[in-house]
Every structure is written in structure tokens, then in C-alpha cells.
Design a protein around this nucleic acid. Structure first.
Lengths: 190, 190
DNA sequence: TATCCCAATTGATATAGGTCAATGAGATTA
DNA sequence: TAATCTCATTGACCTATATCAATTGGGATA
């Protein structure tokens, strides 16, 4: 169960065997079935999740009842409500399984202890959040610079592993356009 | 010169006096005059900058020659091309002073040594990038959820210290709309 | 004071994408 | 097989914002 996360960690930092034991000891296995929720708004956020198997989406529901997908996650991605996790507040997001999923959860308080005990993980999560920051920055630029067609093509190119696992209306939502618009754009690409 | 950054650091972590000496020893003072550039595309990015005094903007110039402001920075903010700094690649951004500015620069290689030598700073920068990630996430949601008027009002509320120091066409650019559109929106608010 | 320069505003028009409503098509269930 | 259900597509129309082109206004400079 820990093979994939071990590899992911070792791709980013060089922990000792003891460090690895320490993080393994605070990870817990979680399963979610397709269509079920890992997180709903109003819940106190105590965990972030590493995806071992499956596919999920994290979305915000605004005051008018519209969804806005912030993130998809497939194998070897972390997912969570990072804002609420950081602030230790209540969630604003839904996290829903698009496919049956197996995850590893890490608890907030245990993570703070781990940071003291094995500071190398401070680096691991710093690197991950930095990469996430960089891709968000690209997403912001992409939205301002490009029209739907180009953004859709970029999405398919950047996330081929996601494009064929999620519905087009979810891709449209992630891109910030309507399913109708994406459908018309796709038509011109055929 | 180090007073403001010392305070900023101590607002986020609890370093020893020795830790503080260590980070001070790798900070360098930099000045930029209004209208001058701290960074231009194609330059190897070796530094990030803490703003002691002044106001700056970081923007990307796309293939069609349109600017896209990613970030403003005033006193006590960090600014830089975080992507190129992280990847140690060439810059894609312009960083331009909107007012005469005094900055403290931190060198990439010196920072890596500092991380080994005083790991508490791994935490400091992890926290800062996490906060930056959170505000970017809000910016993405805001763009998808709200029209110009509401985004403009949010901007003024969130960044009162910036709103009255930068030109409206720069605010419009940051919001991803034209100056004409922002002007019309502002008219309806009077 | 008069002259520049920008930024801001205003007007007229164009367009990408949204909204609403209906239809199709593939998969699942009775 | 028939009946659902869900997602994708298509059509007609609407709207927020972009674009292009003047014009205005206020601060700096000669």
C-alpha cells in the first residue's frame, strides 16, 4: 500500500529509512466509492490525501449553486482542501470520487509532530506546494491569455491521464466554460 | 534595513538569534527606481526579493504582446519569478517598479545552504508559498464565479494598500479585463 | 501660463461565450 | 426488449466584455 507514496517521496527528497518509517506510521488507508464524498463543506479538515488508486475531483459550490472544479487527482497526486487544512478551519469544498479510490490520509496534528521529528518532510511538502503554486499560476495566465479551444488542447496535452477518465462537462467546468461551449469547440477540432 | 523582514519572519516562525544571523548574512540590499526593471525575460533567475519599501508588479508578456500582471508587491511582500527560481531556469516575467523601491534579495544557492544549516527556514518558505497558493486559488475561483464589478470590489477590499498606489489600467490588467471595462464598471459604482 | 503626456473616460460596434430548451446516443436497469 | 438515466450535442438567442477610435482631464515640464 505504501509503495507508490514511498516512490513519490523519494522522487522529491532523500529521506532516511527512519524518516520513512516515521511518515508511514502516521498514514492511514481510506477508500471511497465512485460518487461518494471524501469531504463536504462545513466539515473540520483534519487530513490531506495521497491517491494510491482512482480519480477524484475537488470543487467549490458558490452562492448561486454553481460548481467550480479546483483540482482533479489521479494516482500519485495529493488532494485536499489545502486552505482549510492549513488554517485548520471548516471545509469549503466537496471532494468526490469519480472512480472508486484508495487513498492514504495524513493527519494535520500528526504532520506538525512529524515536521519537528523529521524536518526533511517540511522540504517535501514545501516542494509539492511550490509545484502546485506554479501550475496554478499557469492556469491563471492561461485563462487570461487563451480562448477555450487553446485551453482545452493544453489541458489534454498536460493531463492526458485525466482527459480520458473524466466527463467532458467536468473538463468544461475545470476550464471555466459551459459544457455546451466545450462541445462546440470540440466539434471544430474534429 | 533588516527590521521589517525580521518582523515578517518572526510573525511566521520562531527562529533563534543564530538562525536570524544566518539569514541576514545572505540577504543583500537592492534598489530599483520607478519604471526600472528588477527582472526581464530571458535572465537567469538567481534571486527572490523582499520589499522593504516601494511598490512593484510582476507580469508576463504573451506571444501577442499583451501583458498579464501576476502579482503586485508592496512593503513586506516577497516578489520574484517563483517558477524560474524554483526550476533555476530563465525568467518569463518582467518585474517593474511602480514606485522607487528598496528590496532585500536572497540568492538561490545560498538559500539551499541555509535550508541545510537552519531548517526552520524551510518552514518559513513553506508557509509563505502555502499562503500564496491559497490566494491564487481564491483568484481562480473569483475569476470563474464573479463578474468584473464584484472582482473589482473584492480587490479594493482585499488590497486597500495597493488599490490607491497603482494605476487603474494595472488593476484592470490584474483582474483580466480591459481598462475600458473597468472604467465603465467604476462609473456605475459612483 | 502654455504645452505635453498619460491615463481615464466615452461612444459605437463586434464577438466569445452564456443561457435556455430540445434532441440524440450510449449505458444501465427493470 | 423496453424504459430510464446521464451526458453530449445542437439550435436560437442574449449578454458581458473586447475592440477600435475619439475625447477629456490632471499632473509634470518647459
Amino acid at each position: 500500500m505504501h509503495t507508490s507514496i514511498a516512490k513519490h517521496i523519494q522522487n522529491h527528497i532523500h529521506p532516511s529509512a527512519i524518516d520513512m518509517q516515521k511518515i508511514f506510521s502516521i498514514l492511514n488507508e481510506v477508500s471511497v466509492s465512485k460518487g461518494a464524498f471524501l469531504l463536504k463543506p462545513g466539515t473540520r479538515v483534519k487530513h490531506e490525501y495521497f491517491v494510491v488508486k482512482g480519480c477524484l475531483k475537488a470543487y467549490y459550490m458558490d452562492g448561486k449553486g454553481s460548481k467550480h472544479i479546483l483540482q482533479f487527482a489521479v494516482e500519485n497526486w495529493w488532494i485536499g482542501d489545502f486552505e482549510a487544512f492549513y488554517n485548520q478551519g471548516n471545509s469549503n469544498l466537496y471532494i468526490e470520487a469519480i472512480e472508486d479510490a484508495q487513498l492514504l490520509s495524513i493527519n494535520h496534528d500528526a504532520l506538525q509532530v512529524l515536521y519537528e521529528d523529521a524536518p526533511i518532510f517540511e522540504r517535501y511538502f514545501r516542494i509539492l506546494i511550490t509545484k502546485a503554486f506554479i501550475s496554478q499560476q499557469k492556469r491563471i495566465l492561461s485563462t487570461q491569455e487563451k480562448h477555450t479551444q487553446e485551453r482545452y488542447l493544453d489541458f489534454c496535452k498536460s493531463y492526458p491521464s485525466i482527459e480520458n477518465r473524466v466527463a467532458n462537462y467536468d473538463i468544461a467546468n475545470y476550464l471555466g466554460v459551459t459544457p455546451e461551449n466545450l462541445s462546440r469547440v470540440r466539434k471544430t477540432l474534429k
